[in-house]
Design a binder for these strands. Structure first.
Lengths: 339, 339
DNA sequence: TTGTATGCGTTATCAC
DNA sequence: GTGATAACGCATACAA
């Protein structure tokens, strides 16, 4: 005897019956339309009385849209929810979607099985569009998005396979170049880099910018590369650098988390920052103000990135105006005390 | 001329036509059932040919379920995605749901508007159940959950209004008591606490455990309380404590993030840890191993918490066996070098 | 084993 | 302004 777990829910039909009108009229007070004051009050009373709650599955089926947008962060799971940047992007996207009365749903991908299931979810009509962060060229999701033609915006450089899809991001190369130059201007002569996530465009671009700034003075022996934008890897990367070149007096870390780790490694090695070694980071995340000394870094307007991504998706969903293919936001250097 | 934005998608009907069978048969190969080998191959070919992708809205409507479970973290947004614990709980919940072929969708609540919309989302049938983290008694979501009778599991003590709902958590009081005792055993005589988030059960319980351990020796003047489990508040709380009682020689911080902040404040005040002051935290999150020295803390099995929460929800959805009302997991003290 | 008919709850398009 | 009615695409019970 399992029995019904929940009572049957009231439908528009029930409301119409209780109010003594037709379903059409009920729908009009629900979704706006011409309706007499009398009918309206009667219906509103009926709604309260029968405890009507709209069934969005039915609405979704009839209207062919869900008023929801998916948010996917394709980060290794260890980082997924610890990266302050992703959080800020999510919040920015959410508030823009919220304004347009769309529900943001974020989906985590932590296994192949997840990948498959999320694919079905996206193509099943649960969302009208998607925002995808940190995709790499080989991520299978990209092909899928193309196949089902889901309105999508990428955050960060679009992977090769999706060059024609809208994206929003910053100029990683230019900003990396600029902050490296600023570091050079402090008179450092042996400047190294802790490069991270070279399999992502952001990681590769930051290294490119670093090389460009150094030009002839670039020394491949002075770059340590680590797989992730992560504190622990920052520690390791800095140790490696010190090991290879004890005379290093400047370091560009690929992210603030990495820079924070580098600071720790420098402290354990007895180097003073910024006196002995100047350190700069990237992102201007919450790490930057928590280190001692606070980090000179590149400000990434993460919230704005999220907001623009959401707007690009919404505009594609509306399908009215042509969508510009990309938005590149300013990412200025902010100079503090670590260099 | 807006024009159709996307071509009409193939339906079961189209597949049936292409394969020369009925829709019923197509459905049987899709959802399992008796189908002849001939029919099956024909249908599979047809599916590929017409590019059929199931419309889950229709399926949802017909079956009255979505195979999705909502995940809500009711944290202040600044913390939402930076708290390593929440990330671990999400991952744990996701993997359990994934095994049961359910899609976890996480919803952020960052405004009243969000609250309303998420309420409609949950009650609209987009999810079959929900996992709710860090709810407080007055959170409107709780009443809503009760009203719509959505299978739900709370993570952390259930708020008063939901005493009858399943939850999973740890014994915050007991663990706080235990780690405080350990700290006392190191011979400290002036032990303070940086209490945080006293409006949440976890925060209040940790303070209670602290008081219990100290007994007669408890001195209200030695507790600084801050609103959030946050690094920056840890710095502030520790400064306040030092200010009030310079002789403080032991500190229980309500979380590892807070403890990390406390360490920073102690460093700037010239106190050595653990020589001058012993510090312990709570959570055993990634912070614990990143501080110098690494934190003695309480291990919170966040991933397991998420897993159990998911299982409790799934069991309610299945509705077969009676659901035990709560799961309390072990949270042992792990002793490192900060005290 | 396969085909058919009906229902799921809402929206939209008509006449009235 | 309002009331019927036909989609929307899938699942399922029943007939064949």
């Amino acid at each position: 005897m399992t029995g019904p777990r929940r009572a049957r829910r009231a439908t528009v039909h029930d409301v119409a019956a209780a109010a003594g009108v037709s379903r059409g009229t009920v729908n009009r007070v629900l979704n706006g339309g011409y309706v007499s004051a009398d009918a309206r009050t009667a219906i509103e009373a009926a709604i309260a009385k029968v405890g009507y709650v709209p069934n969005r599955a039915a609405s979704m089926l009839a209207r062919q849209r869900s008023q929801a947008v998916g948010f996917l962060a394709l980060e290794p799971h260890s980082l997924l929810l610890e990266d302050p940047n992703i959080g800020a992007i999510m919040l920015g996207a959410n508030s823009a979607l919220s304004l347009a009365d769309h529900q943001m749903v974020s989906l985590v991908i932590d296994s192949d099985r997840d990948m498959q299931r999320v694919g079905r979810y996206l193509s099943g009509g649960f969302v009208d569009g998607a925002i995808i962060v940190s995709a790499r060229s080989h991520d299978p999701i990209i092909r899928l998005i193309g196949e089902i033609g889901l309105p999508t915006t990428f955050v960060g450089h679009p992977p090769d396979l999706a060059r024609d899809m809208p994206y929003v991001g910053i100029d990683n190369i230019g900003s990396a170049r600029e902050i490296t130059r600023r570091l050079m201007q402090t008179g450092r002569t042996r400047i190294g880099m802790i490069a991270a996530a070279l399999d992502r465009d952001s990681g590769a671009d930051r290294l490119t910018g670093f090389k460009e700034a150094l030009g002839d003075r670039f020394d491949p022996g002075l770059v340590a590369d680590v797989p992730l934008y992560d504190y622990t890897y920052g520690v390791k990367g800095m140790r490696a650098l010190l090991d290879r070149e004890p005379a290093v007096d400047g370091v560009f870390a690929a992210s603030d988390a990495v820079a924070a780790g580098a600071l720790e490694a420098l402290r354990e090695a007895g180097r003073r920052v910024p006196e002995d070694v100047g350190v700069v980071g990237f992102d201007d995340s919450s790490w930057a103000l928590r280190t001692q000394p606070p980090l000179s870094t590149v400000h990434q307007p993460a919230r704005e990135v999220g907001r623009h991504a959401a707007e690009l998706v919404l505009r594609q969903i509306a399908g009215t105006e042509p969508v510009e293919l990309s938005v590149v936001l300013d990412s200025p250097v902010v100079w503090r005390h670590s260099a």
